[in-house]
Nucleic acid binder design. Structure first.
Lengths: 330, 330
DNA sequence: CTGAAAGCGCTTACAG
DNA sequence: CTGAAAGCGCTTACAG
């Protein structure tokens, strides 16, 4: 692989001069510049990023960590959509991304990123307080997306989960449902807890019209929807609607009802949360609360880039407004 | 950030000695080793990956490029699943991955990876002959997954698309369907072309029992299924089954039939290809041909790692066997 | 077991 | 406009 030194020798100039034309910093006489450019092309020169990173202290890499309990994760319809936005936005800004996933909330992926001296970090999902404290003391700038824990002094981007669930409940109530069951993801996670609280608040505010059915709390996957829906059906007080705290769960519920011969929404309505890609293609199409996943990813890199430019960490909390999408399952 | 030099000074030894204990190469007297380790911990030392890469000529990074026409892509249920396997397997081997996507089949993402001096590359999907030639002359080892073009001298991993489509047709025929329509992704891509050929071959081999319905060729997304299904329904000779060359297309078709009040599979059967995660949750659950996406990703990194260890590029073609998954849509 | 030296491929003041 | 020098943080023979 050709180096700056090789091409300097061929052209008959110093490495410094070659470096100047390669990087574009500093001036150079037009015709020697032309000669250098030509040699670069002929010798197939490509700058060594590591050498450059060593001296400039900038790597142009931003690390992305997804902490989550269960695989698969990159392809996950929620996080994957955020990743897509992150990939697009970083690329636009000339940065590269390095992605790591970790099922345990450990620090060794963080350690990897420190070794690589990434310019900044974006952390998704199960980011605990302990983890945040760890990253804070590494002094590398980071922004959080849909973090589990809130720690002050950090910049994070979340969806307004409380409001979204509140709105969802209102939607259901306005449709005339009287008994609403609730299937939830793990309440340790901020988002599921807020959804749960927002939902309850709405029901309390409309106590006369509606009552809470059985609540089933499980994991965040389809299986939870399956077992949850099954157990809900066994109560004496059968609900006429079920709210699932995410679309995966809702999809599981949909399947159970279908296999049991129940008609959705006639026999029982189903509503989800997140608006993942496939929710529009379920049968019936799923009513849900849309989370602006693209915006989350895009804003995260923009905020991070701002921090990198200004050389200092901000602490800003961005709470994105959700939106009820009424489709055919309610 | 503490360097090897800092800790050498504190402990009172040379950088060389510190380097030896950090890297584990070379010997060191137990108690000076202990002192060094202690200092490393106290000073929060983390090796600089770039400095190391410079001298060892190994970066421990493998680049992953997904060439595809349309976004989103990381979250794509087919490629995302492969990415998950790649992420898991590389991590297991102590490598990091850097992911880039490109909607145009250009070389500049390749250029980025050369700058980073990645140890190897995994290229997914729309990898044209031109692109492969380009990567071959960079002399960086790579393996292809589900590549568009086949170029000899390369290592690639594909699904046996011909056989899968053949088997799919047999499945449909054995179920007694008489007229089968076909909705296809772009035939420029090897996989769609082979699926198309395999399907036709099976029909020819069983000419007496079945005939081909309308063929609709479009893109690879859900919309193609929607427009394709709609146009198929307008033929005089209505099919009693439709084969979609991927699950996304099948899902689109399913939706159209549902919205038109047709019962699947009673009025018309639908079969897909790929077995993406959501296919098991459609209504009715989609009959499809499973592609071993996890295996594709895992084998790709294993093959690449072998090449890296042996210091030479292999050329091996791995054709994974597909498997018909009969569910409720046929 | 340990240190001095050279070098990986670049950039960045500093002179001229 | 251009070059010599120092340095980024490591590793790797080579001596001792």
């Amino acid at each position: 692989m050709a180096t700056i030194k090789d091409i300097a020798k061929v052209v008959g100039v110093s490495k410094s001069t070659v470096s100047r034309v390669v990087s574009g910093h500093g001036s150079c006489k037009p015709d020697t510049k032309a000669k250098i450019l030509k040699a670069m092309r002929e010798m197939n020169y490509t700058p060594n990023h590591h050498a450059r990173a060593m001296v400039t202290k900038k790597t142009g890499i931003i690390g992305v960590i997804i902490y989550r309990k269960h695989m698969p994760i990159i392809s996950h319809p929620y996080y994957g959509a955020i990743l897509d936005a992150i990939a697009t936005e970083t690329r636009k800004a000339g940065y590269s991304i390095m992605i790591m996933t970790d099922d345990e909330a450990t620090m060794d992926v963080g350690d990897q990123f420190i070794r690589h001296r990434v310019d900044g970090l974006i952390l998704l999902s199960r980011v605990t307080e302990e983890l945040i404290n760890y990253y804070q003391q590494t002094s590398i700038p980071f922004v959080l997306i849909n973090n589990t824990a809130i720690v002050k002094g950090t910049t994070y981007i979340v969806n307004d989960d409380y409001q979204g669930a509140y709105d969802a409940a209102i939607h259901l109530i306005s449709k005339g449902y009287k008994t609403i069951a609730y299937i939830s993801g793990p309440l340790e996670h901020r988002s599921y807890r807020l959804r749960w609280e927002g939902f309850q608040a709405a029901l309390q505010d409309h106590g006369a019209a509606v009552k809470m059915g059985l609540t089933y709390i499980g994991d965040s996957g389809v299986e939870t929807g399956i077992t949850g829906a099954a157990s809900i059906l066994q109560t004496n007080d059968k609900p006429d609607a079920v709210f699932a705290s995410n679309d995966m769960i809702a999809i599981g519920a949909l399947q159970v009802f279908h296999s049991l011969g129940l008609q959705v929404p006639r026999d029982i309505a189903v509503m989800g949360f997140d608006d993942i890609y496939f929710s529009q293609y379920t049968t019936p199409a799923l009513t849900t609360v849309a989370v602006d996943k693209k915006q989350m990813g895009t804003l995260a890199v923009q905020k991070l880039l701002t921090m990198l430019e200004s050389q200092r960490t901000e602490n800003e909390s961005i709470i994105l407004p959700p939106r009820v999408i009424a489709r055919d399952s309610t």
